[in-house]
Design a protein around this nucleic acid. Sequence first.
DNA 1: CCGATCACGC
DNA 2: CGTCGACGTGATCGGG
Length: 508
Amino acid sequence: MNNYEKIKEVINRSGIIATDVSKELFKLSLSERENAIFDVAIASYLLEPSLGNHSLSKMSLKYLSRPFPSLPKNPSEDELSGCVSLRASILLALYPILKEELDRRELGRIYYNVELPLSSVLARMEERGVLVDTEFFKEEGKRLKKELQGYEERIYKLAGMKFNLNSPKQLSYILFEKLGLPKIKRTKTGVSTNQEVLEKLVPYHEIVELLLQYRETEKIRSTYIDALPELVENGRVRTKWCQTTTATGRLSSIKPNLQNIPPTVREGFVAPPDWVLLSSDYSQIELRIVASLSGDKNLKEAFERNEDIHTRTAALVLGIPEELVGKKEREMAKMINFGIIYGMGAYGLSRRLGISVEDANLFINAYFRTYPGVKEWVENTVREATEKGYTTTILGRKRYFESVKGADIRAAINAPVQGSAADMIKVAMVNIDKALSNKKSGMIIQVHDELVLEVTEDELTEVSDIVKREMERAVSLGVPVVCDIKVGKNWGRMEKLEKNSHGLHRLN
DNA sequence: CCGATCACGC
DNA sequence: CGTCGACGTGATCGGG
């Protein structure tokens, strides 16, 4: 037996306690059964998701009141083994405490049924990586550079001088001192030059429109087109899927962050020859969850009718037939629906809609008259967060609050909604991974309500069925759950996959 | 190195 | 008084 096999044997016989690295253990196939691993970071995350980072040093202080020893510089062999065994003893001591606490707070189920299995799914996604079309990035880089040079020259001419376009401070001197444009909003340190402000300044000066275009293009160039190819290895990027960073239960992604790629850049993520990318996204999942959590009769009915939810909301709130709902009315309803998910306030809504706070209040009242169950749910959720000190998702994930006031009110309303959606897609990921275990196809990206898979052409029909089924049935909401499936050679240009009596075919 | 500003996604 | 929709990651500037 070699060392690798020895380690593997011990792990599978006795189990192992790990932190953060459980994904690495899965990658090395060191664990044959998931439950052989106890990951203290994931446990700590479920106990206190807002903590931010779940380093051993933090956990050691919090749960054992002991400092976690750092490795000395140039240690002797004795020092090194002493430090390492001390660290191991801390890891070992954390295990019973965290495990017991998980059970006591009824977080054991989500730990064993969702997060731990998910950890190995994420390991496989990291291993597979995502194929990148480096040629696309090269060409786009050239094109954007040219475009930016054009903006730059024209902006300098209009400003009457050169300056650093990427410096908000220098820009604000140009706009508000040199050109004398009105100061619309302040920041802590000066006058704001953000997009919202610039849009209001467009009528005052020709330069503003160019600045908006410059900003947009420069963002794409610097953040995506230039930075991404740096992370490509053997044609693929391998993002790190972070399982213990968000306060609500969502995943996050770093190096690169694949969860904020703009549509134009998505074209650079591709399928190999004879493969396609398949994307499946939940339609209106967070509003469906609001319907489910609140049990509101009208909101549930709106989804059961399978109509456009914003149009339906507008019709109900305004008391007019759906045929008479115009673009403006629909947009209004969309904003309110969106606001609900984020713990809507009259002020925020008034700003989004460009109306007075009084009018925004009228709309909110009309909304709550339409969906009285939602109003009740919002009030109950805030009350519960205050009384119990935490909110809960459909699968029992908790987020803790010290006191529920100010921004925490909105966070407390949002947490069960966003968190339940996270629960749901995580369950789907675990089940999809299992269902695809003997196939070549596999998941590569998750963007909160969207899953992207790399699929061989011959597995397409079967895989799309599995993905749709597992996403829609991951958790029973008591309202319809719908996923839309798209397919393409890259992540940017995809076509809807529709099912008909003859099987599957692509539209267009 | 770090806070501030800005901007991308959901 | 000004802020002010939830949750993230990252590029860049500019001061320490």
